[in-house]
């Protein structure tokens, strides 16, 4: 189980690289500009069931996207929850 921390928006190449690397049972945490994935509910990460996906609440708030995430029923964690995810995963990879 690996925690993948994605910091780039869906418009970059990086999310596609993550899709190739991520395995069933892993966790994807979207942070910084990565939270703009909220704006596209058709993205693969929102429609699959192989791994859990979370958005970092602080970065959603900073970009005015909290209500959109809530409307779509997307799961969020605060910074405390981010630390909790790192406790639960022995390894993490930051994609940037």
């Amino acid at each position: 189980m690996i925690l993948h921390i994605l910091t780039t928006p869906p418009t970059s190449e990086v999310p596609r690289q993550v899709e190739q690397a991520i395995q069933a049972g892993d966790t994807l945490l979207l942070t910084e500009a990565g939270v703009t994935a909220t704006l596209d509910p058709d993205l693969h990460c929102w429609t699959q069931n192989d791994y859990a996906v979370f958005l970092l609440e602080e970065d959603l708030v900073a970009r005015g996207l909290s209500s959109i995430a809530a409307t779509h029923g997307l799961s969020t964690v605060d910074m405390d929850g981010f630390v909790a995810l790192t406790e639960q995963h022995l390894q993490s990879v930051t994609w940037y």
Binding site: T7, T31, E32, A33, E58, D59, M79, D80, F82, V83, A84, E87, Y96
Partner: peptide, 19 residues
């Protein structure tokens, strides 16, 4: 870049959780 701010907030959260 947002990385230093993110790291700093994470650092305080780590300490707040007793690590």
């Amino acid at each position: 870049q947002p990385a230093p701010h993110s790291a700093l907030r994470f650092a305080h959260a780590v300490l707040a959780r007793g690590h």
